[in-house]
Simulated scan of single mutants.
Amino acid sequence: MQSENSQNELFEEVELTPASTVKRFINYLIDVILFYILMLVIGLSIALFIPSLIETMANINAFADRILTLVLFALYMSVTEAIFKGKSLGKLITGTRAVNLDGSEISLSTAFGRGFSRAVPLCVFSAFGNPCNPWQDRWTDTVVIDG
Rank of each mutant, 00 (worst) to 15 (best):
L44A: 10
E4Y: 08
G115I: 08
S104V: 07
V124D: 04
D102T: 09
S88L: 04
G147Q: 05
S52A: 15
R118K: 14
L101R: 10
K23M: 10
G86V: 04
R114Q: 03
D102M: 08
L108S: 05
P131C: 11
G90T: 02
P18R: 12
M57G: 09
G43N: 03
R118Y: 06
K23Y: 12
A19L: 10
D141F: 09
M1D: 06
R118M: 14
L16D: 06
L34K: 05
D141A: 15
L101N: 13
L122A: 15
L38K: 05
N61A: 09
A47C: 06
L34A: 09
M39F: 06
V79S: 00
S117H: 05
L68N: 07
I60Q: 07
T21P: 05
E81K: 01
I50R: 07
I30N: 01
A82Y: 00
T110P: 02
Y36H: 10
D31R: 00
A58I: 08
M39I: 11
N8R: 14
I50L: 14
L68C: 07
M39A: 14
D65Q: 10
V124G: 07
K23G: 08
T94F: 02
I60D: 03
S3L: 07
A58G: 09
K91C: 03
S52H: 07
I42N: 04
T96N: 04
E9P: 03
G147N: 05
M57T: 10
L68S: 12
L75K: 02
E55N: 15
I83M: 14
S107K: 08
L38P: 01
T80K: 01
L70Y: 06
M39S: 14
G113N: 09
P134I: 11
S78R: 04
N133V: 12
I67T: 11
T80G: 00
G129V: 13
A74Q: 02
